[in-house]
Design a protein around this nucleic acid. Sequence first.
DNA 1: TATCACTTCCAAAACGTTTTGGATCCAATT
DNA 2: AATTGGATCCAAAACGTTTTGGAAGTGATA
Lengths: 350, 350
Amino acid sequence: MPTIKDIARLAGVSITTVSRALNGYPDVSEATRQKIKKIAEELNYTPNSIARGLVMKKTNTVGLVVSEIIKPGVYHPFFLEILAGIKAALRRSGYDIILFTVDHESQGKVSYERLCKERKVDGTIVQGLKLSDPYIEQIKSTDIPTVMIDIPILTEKVGYVSSDNVKGAFDAVNYLVQLGHREIGFINGHKDAAVSFERLEGYRKALEHNGIRYDDRYVVYGDYTQQSGAEAFKKLILEVPGITAVFCASDLMAVGALKAAYEIGKKVPEDISIMGFDDIELSTIITPNLTTIRQEKYKMGYKAAELLLSIIKGGKPRHEVIPHKLVIRQSTRHYLQVMREDDCCTKAVE
Amino acid sequence: MPTIKDIARLAGVSITTVSRALNGYPDVSEATRQKIKKIAEELNYTPNSIARGLVMKKTNTVGLVVSEIIKPGVYHPFFLEILAGIKAALRRSGYDIILFTVDHESQGKVSYERLCKERKVDGTIVQGLKLSDPYIEQIKSTDIPTVMIDIPILTEKVGYVSSDNVKGAFDAVNYLVQLGHREIGFINGHKDAAVSFERLEGYRKALEHNGIRYDDRYVVYGDYTQQSGAEAFKKLILEVPGITAVFCASDLMAVGALKAAYEIGKKVPEDISIMGFDDIELSTIITPNLTTIRQEKYKMGYKAAELLLSIIKGGKPRHEVIPHKLVIRQSTRHYLQVMREDDCCTKAVE
DNA sequence: TATCACTTCCAAAACGTTTTGGATCCAATT
DNA sequence: AATTGGATCCAAAACGTTTTGGAAGTGATA
């Protein structure tokens, strides 16, 4: 491996000059610069980023700490999209990603600070932490440039990106109301995710906005997995048989609900409307296609990386909210109350 | 940030002693070792891996170069599982992953060597390259410890892991034959993947093994996406209307085929059997559940990382083959030739 | 007493960069 | 002739480790 020392020797100049020539400083004549560049080229010289990192105290590396996302058997349905966004934003600034995966247990063993400082990352993006994870508290008082995804922490050095979950849930439920539904169930996710609280709030607000009384019995909890969605649906339908629509806090749970509905003989959307949240790829593959609130995951990743870069440069952390979209597909439908009571009308309306 | 220099000062010893005490060398008395450890603890000292990497010429970092896996709109269906396996194998040896994403274009700009050497990774795992990618040739003559996934390259420093794709495809097609099918189509993937050739070979061998003549018209090509699977299926059914089963080189294409079948009014598995390859999560979500050849992706990642570690340590590269499994679900079914010709028998058999 | 072996320690070099604070030379200006 | 200013260059320090090749001290042995 050639070093600037080799180049210096070959070119008959000092290593200072090589360094400055290669890095475009003005105090080196064009002639020697060309000579040096040529030699570097011939030697197939690549600068040693480790050595550079040591003296500059900057590694051009950001950490990506992820939790609960890659573990055997449970794979996050849109982590890759976020990652793609992050990568895209990082590309031109020459940053690389170093991947840390943590779980609840490992967080007890090595602190957030230590994790980052040991590898000397310039900043980190944090994805998939639960509210009860030890890192949450540690991050609230860290001085490492950090951006959280979907977890609201805002300090001198940490910012976050998220969708407007309150508004997203509001839009979903409001849409169901517009379809004529008034008995609307809500399958929420676990209380270890900040978004669960926000989506619940959106659900409540939409009901209130439409003059529908909120009732605890209409909301039931899963853990964002398909399985849990199915179970929650069954529980909900037992508790409140009269519901005509259910809003789920994730597409995965909505798919579970969909399957549970079929199992107990309810057709979607004819008998009951089901809505999801996220818009994962599966939503367009499943039959019927899911009506859902689309989160722009790629953009979330992109904005997260941009924000991190700006914090690293000394910018002020902020909350970046990524716009969502209501996407209407096949799993929801008008609730025609009149028709129920008066079958003769059916044809006319159809 | 405290350094060993600080510790040395506080403990009244040399930095040599601090280094050796912390790294468990025997030539330091237990008393001073404890004193040093205590001070390190109090200062919340974390060793600087950059400085260490510089002198040791070893970064405890492996690169993960991925291509075509994370780009907007197309996400690899089981990259995360492989990643989880890699992570698991790397955990206890203290290696971290640095993520390189490349595409055909970027490969022209910076060579494989440069990519790795600039960041000073100790080795790399390579995933998702196409046969036509520039890196393929470069990797064949690299001296960087490398393990390929699904691409057969075996040199002094590079090994690979893969399923036995020939045998996998053989098992799939052979199973279809056992079900009574003899008119079996094959939706293969593009020729930019080594596995495509192997799976084709398996398909041919299974036919031959069962005394069925191979016919070019029965095989058609997609690009491993759902969309392409649907198109390929339609093309195939037009070309050879008589087929009773089709084997797809990926689950994603099988799902596409499934949908195309429904579109043209063919029921699966009643009218036609469809088999996939991979066993992605989607296979159990789709209706009917896909019969498929399961690849152990987690294990592939795990073994890849293990192999890489061994190559880094000076071990000899090898081809690690990961066992596959035939998993029978709902998309395949007996082909009852007799019944077609003599309807009265149906009931008896059912 | 001199030698030896063992334990415990350390000064200095090395890793490959960047950066600081000049030094040297030449031409132009006083 | 002396001074200034600009262009071009460089020696040395610094970054935080590990490692080499002893040195110093102690107790046992010859």
